[in-house]
Simulated assay, not measured.
Amino acid sequence: MPALNPYLNFNNNTEEAFNFYKSVFGGEFAMVMRFKDIPKEYKGPDHEDNKVMHISLPITGGGVLMGSDVPESMGEVVLGNNIQLSLAPSSREEADKLFNGLSAGGKVTMPMSDAFWGAYFGMCEDKFGIRWMVNFDANSR
């Protein structure tokens, strides 16, 4: 069974929000990656360099709260599109099965493929409007 974690999107205040969540849940950030840290071919405008590309905070019970700032090129975050569910399957095969099942009748926003951070990753919106991310990382197993 894959791990299921909430993924929160923000308009330029991810770091502030996650420092708040850290004060509530405790613990330390497992990862903080900024847009300036990604390969050039994926980068946007220089003024987005210090925005948070990905942050994760392990919370009680084995869950992980994750989030990012949304670059201008991806539109504005509004209530309703600011939460996604992230699945962490245990194999590429399971990742494909889950992704294909969830995207059936819905919309693929990023097909499953090898991502620059080393994972096999894809994003979709199911037929009910729920946004999903599927991230298989063989190195975290």
Rank of each mutant, 00 (worst) to 15 (best):
16 E>C: 07
15 E>H: 09
32 V>N: 02
10 F>V: 10
31 M>I: 12
31 M>N: 09
8 L>E: 02
28 E>R: 03
5 N>F: 03
4 L>T: 15
25 F>L: 09
23 S>I: 06
21 Y>W: 04
27 G>Y: 02
20 F>V: 15
22 K>W: 06
25 F>D: 08
26 G>N: 04
26 G>P: 07
8 L>Q: 00
17 A>G: 08
9 N>T: 10
3 A>N: 13
10 F>E: 12
24 V>P: 04
3 A>M: 13
20 F>I: 14
5 N>R: 03
18 F>A: 11
12 N>D: 14
32 V>D: 02
15 E>F: 12
23 S>E: 12
25 F>V: 08
8 L>W: 01
8 L>C: 08
31 M>F: 04
21 Y>G: 04
27 G>N: 02
23 S>A: 14
14 T>R: 00
28 E>M: 01
9 N>F: 10
16 E>S: 13
25 F>E: 10
12 N>M: 07
6 P>A: 05
3 A>D: 13
17 A>C: 12
26 G>F: 07
12 N>H: 11
6 P>I: 03
4 L>S: 14
30 A>N: 04
25 F>A: 13
25 F>N: 07
23 S>W: 00
5 N>L: 04
28 E>P: 01
15 E>G: 11
12 N>V: 08
3 A>Q: 15
3 A>T: 10
9 N>Y: 09
11 N>G: 06
5 N>W: 03
28 E>S: 12
3 A>K: 14
33 M>R: 10
19 N>S: 04
29 F>D: 05
24 V>D: 07
23 S>L: 06
32 V>F: 00
7 Y>L: 06
15 E>N: 09
25 F>W: 07
7 Y>N: 06
6 P>M: 02
24 V>H: 02
12 N>R: 15
12 N>W: 01
24 V>A: 11
19 N>L: 09
14 T>N: 03
6 P>Y: 01
29 F>C: 05
31 M>A: 15
30 A>W: 00
8 L>D: 02
33 M>H: 00
29 F>G: 05
16 E>D: 15
18 F>L: 11
23 S>H: 00
30 A>I: 00
25 F>H: 06
30 A>G: 10
14 T>K: 00
16 E>W: 06
4 L>E: 09
13 N>Q: 12
9 N>I: 09
10 F>Y: 15
19 N>R: 10
5 N>T: 06
2 P>T: 12
22 K>M: 05
11 N>Y: 02
24 V>F: 09
8 L>K: 00
16 E>N: 09
12 N>P: 00
31 M>W: 00
17 A>I: 06
4 L>A: 15
27 G>P: 06
14 T>D: 03
2 P>V: 13
29 F>W: 02
5 N>I: 03
27 G>E: 03
17 A>T: 07
15 E>A: 14
26 G>I: 11
31 M>E: 11
7 Y>M: 08
17 A>L: 05
25 F>R: 03
23 S>C: 05
